[in-house]
């Protein structure tokens, strides 16, 4: 990229410039992402921090800020929805991330072993990720419908009485989880597949020659190599699962009651629908703190396993 812009430089200058660039490669390589972050995130995040200790209202078309200190914590203490929403969120995140991780890894290993039709599986397994969430939510709600949905129609043909799905408070969150697993297993599958495909198979052959069986090869050779990828994948997926929005919004809206209310949906209601910007900002920050606990846990797990070896 430098060569074209330096056409009329002398050889000498060019040489010096490229040496300079090469010596400082690490700095200019990191610069673009720092610029992106500075321009596009500092202002919104700063705004969010300020909001979390303020009240805002439009007065005669102008947004007016009032500093309220820690008042929003008081609101939080009296909020009857947050405990339910947090409980559902944690349950949702733990269940879907575990199920999807196991399925994703299993499918990645199986696909990597399939010689024929691997292209077919790799493509098909990606499809759920390609469909816009608004359509996923709508179509699944249609499929779940008690009166005309295809799921209960199929169960009926099999001689079974279908459950109420999203209308049953005990099943609403499960219904949402089913859709989530269908939708997001692809994500972990893809990352794990990239990891599995980068594995050095020469090592496994050497191990097999030494008499290791298939499970041992995976357990003692592949899994340790895959661990960094798995940790990053789990971390990213956990964050995404905390932010689950469209599919719950469309499938259940958080109901019936608060049986499928999750924190991201509630933040949307508070921050956006009710324009309680300050309290909403506080909830957003608190949720980020909770997610950080998961992230720290994954990093700790990574180091712990590392030390054990």
């Amino acid at each position: 990229m430098m060569a074209t812009s330096a056409v009329d430089m002398t050889r000498q200058q060019r040489w010096r410039l490229s040496t300079f660039l090469d010596a400082n490669f690490q700095y200019w390589a990191l610069a673009p992402i720092l610029i992106f972050l500075a321009v596009l995130t500092l202002y919104p995040v700063g705004q969010l921090l300020r909001m979390s200790v303020s009240d805002m209202a439009f007065v005669k078309g102008k947004l007016e800020w009032t500093y309220v200190g820690l008042d929003h914590f008081q609101t939080l203490r009296n909020d009857p929805v947050v405990p339910d929403a947090l409980k559902n969120t944690l349950l949702f995140v733990v269940v879907v991330v575990c199920v999807e991780a196991v399925l994703g890894l299993l499918l990645a290993i199986l696909v990597s072993r399939a010689r024929r039709f691997a292209w077919f599986y790799r493509s098909v397994y990606m499809i759920p990720l390609l469909i816009p969430p608004i359509a996923i939510g709508t179509i699944w709600r249609l499929m779940y419908d008690y009166n005309y949905g295809i799921i209960n129609q199929v169960l009926f043909e099999l001689g079974l009485t279908g459950p109420l799905w999203t209308a049953n408070p005990d099943l609403a969150l499960v219904s949402v989880m089913i859709v989530d697993v269908w939708h997001w297993t692809s994500f972990l599958f893809l990352i794990m597949l990239a990891g599995v495909e980068s594995l050095p198979y020469e090592l496994s052959e050497a191990a097999r020659v030494d008499g290791a069986n298939e499970v041992q090869v995976y357990r003692h050779i592949f899994f340790p190599l895959l661990r960094p990828t798995i940790i990053v994948a789990l971390m990213l997926r956990t964050i995404l699962a905390f932010k689950v929005f469209d599919q719950i919004f469309l499938l259940t809206g958080g109901g019936p009651g608060t049986s499928s209310e999750v924190i991201s949906l509630y933040i949307y209601k508070v921050y956006f629908v009710q324009t309680r910007l300050g309290y909403g900002a506080l909830l957003a920050l608190l949720t980020a703190v909770i997610m950080s606990v998961f992230v720290v846990f994954y990093q700790w797990l990574n180091n712990y396993v590392n030390r054990q070896r």
Binding site: L37, F242, K243, I267, Y268, Y271, A281, T287, A288, M291
Partner: peptide
């Protein structure tokens, strides 16, 4: 940044 709800 990734943890914050996009709506903000």
């Amino acid at each position: 940044v990734n943890m914050l709800p996009p709506i903000i």
